[in-house]
């Protein structure tokens, strides 16, 4: 596993968010260190995806602060947060279906808040495609890709934005047992190259094989955060999420 520094890259402090009467973030506070990989688990409806939406700006905060590299993100739009270095993938991949794999990724590397010339943008796009293992589908329209390759494309497009933090939302969901290790290896390599990762996943054994720390949220509250093995043994986490008969089986 990659080592990470003690410098806080992202600080989430006392964030609150509710949709009508449903509280999806109730004073969540945590820090993410530069180079770290943090896993997030929790029952359905716990507020996991919303947490990522709050970080990347898809949803506005009700209150609290999100500080990234000593700068508040609270008032920035998603595109501006992307320019600052925050990229994300979606639970259901959202490629630009009519565009080729290369064009999809090129769009990511072109619009970075500063002028990037076509040659640089193309080079970044090519590198991102190869890091995600998609070279063979360079000119394929994204709508024609199978699920694993759509997930790789999500990764490649996010990478092309040259992020410091990559938010992954259930990227392993729906993959077969033979596809899963391929994706895990890509994510491990990304993290090793210095990209900080915040990753929501229900496939717990896959998640703990990559992340340094694990966090469990339920009902918009932070239940536990710490070393994966400790969090998985936490009695509240077992009660609220894992169930009493849970075992971390088949660690990849």
């Amino acid at each position: 596993m990659a080592t990470h520094s003690n410098e806080n890259l992202l600080s989430i402090s006392q964030i609150h968010k509710r949709f009508g009467r449903v509280v999806v973030a109730d004073g969540i506070t945590f820090d993410v260190k530069k180079g770290e990989a943090l896993g997030i688990v929790g029952p359905n409806g716990a507020g996991k995806s919303t947490l990522l939406n709050l970080i990347n700006g898809n949803e506005p905060l009700d209150s609290g602060d999100i500080i990234f590299q000593n700068e508040s993100l609270n008032s920035l739009a998603p595109a501006e947060r992307n320019h600052k270095g925050i990229a994300r993938t979606f639970q259901i991949p959202k490629p630009f279906a009519d565009m080729t794999v290369f064009e999809n990724v090129l769009v990511g590397s072109t619009f970075q808040g500063k002028r990037v010339n076509h040659k640089q943008a193309s080079e970044i796009a090519l590198e991102s495609i190869s890091r995600a293992g998609l070279e063979a589908f360079f000119n394929t329209p994204a709508g024609k890709l199978r699920l694993l390759d759509r997930k790789r494309l999500e990764l490649a497009r996010a990478l092309a934005c040259q992020p410091q933090v990559l938010l992954l939302d259930e990227i392993a969901g729906g993959l077969t047992d033979s596809e899963l290790p391929i994706l895990l290896e890509i994510i491990r390599e990304l993290n090793a190259s210095g990209v900080t990762i915040i990753w929501i996943e229900h496939i717990v054994h896959a998640l703990v094989s990559v992340v340094h720390r694990l966090m469990c949220i339920a009902g918009g509250e932070l239940i536990a955060i710490g070393k994966p093995e400790e969090v998985l043994e936490n009695s509240k986490v077992i009660e609220l999420y894992l169930g009493s008969d849970f075992e971390v089986g088949g660690v990849a």
Binding site: N82, F96, F111, C161
Partner: peptide, 13 residues
Amino acid sequence: DDPGAADLVGINN
């Protein structure tokens, strides 16, 4: 194609 995804890759819609 998808204004939401475009926003996330840094495009000012």
